[in-house]
Design a protein around this nucleic acid. Sequence first.
DNA 1: CCATATACCTGGCAGC
DNA 2: TGCTGCCAGGTATATG
Length: 271
Amino acid sequence: MPELPEVEVTRLSFASRISGARVLAMHMGKPLRWPLGVAPSVVVGQTVLQVRRRGKYLLLDMERGVLLLHLGMSGSLNFATSQAPAGKHDHMDLITTQGVLRLHDPRRFGAVVWSESQDHEPALKLLGRLGMEPLTDGFELSAFQQGLKKRQAPIKQVLLAGDVVVGVGNIYASEALFMSGIRPTVKAQKLSGPRVTKLHTAIKEVLARAVAQGGSSLKDFVSAEGQTGYFQLEASVYGRAGLPCRVCHTPIKQIVQGQRSTFFCPLCQKH
DNA sequence: CCATATACCTGGCAGC
DNA sequence: TGCTGCCAGGTATATG
């Protein structure tokens, strides 16, 4: 569920609502990917200053540290208005003066980590090797090109790795490569300048469009299930194995790269 | 440094 | 209906 667009839409959906809130209590459920790092009581009493996003991580800046959240594969955040009973898969409740921020994550690949904001904190180390933010000016074509030039791995896997550019998950990697007419198996370093330019544009476009779409359903995003965004978007290739390409009607192919599914049109993405 | 495999965990679904 | 096997939006870590 959560690639960059959904994480960003999630952020937008609760950032203003929780900013300025003071933490009254914090409850953790079953273990997530990493331990919180401190007793939940450490977070109690702190005020949420702002909510930022870095890649697919959400960062709740507080007075004395940062609460880092990751949604993993199956996580979502929602606001429980009162003390509605936590369900089987609710693994964090942040009870604040402005509502209860609740993490729902069946597979528990997500994470909630507290970090006292200085350098060598393990939580912030997670952010250390992340690549460029695709929806900011920092995502410069020349830097993108330079990043790809070093890589011999297939372009799809380089996009997913997140150390050149962040936020492109398994769905949007396939979609962006389709948009730019690039075969996912091509070695990153073999892409010509013009093709890198196309890909650079496609990544920005596909992610920005998805954020906009998610944003349009923002009203019921939280109260509903937190999943409306993706289903509004029509995938060009993802999940469409065997179905006709929307452009040329050639059957879409599905392959496996790095144990993940990749989808592409063999005609529109010739090499 | 780089590329690839592995591990984490649960639910949904196709097929029998 | 129930079982089994496979698949799923991520990514740190180990291994070669």
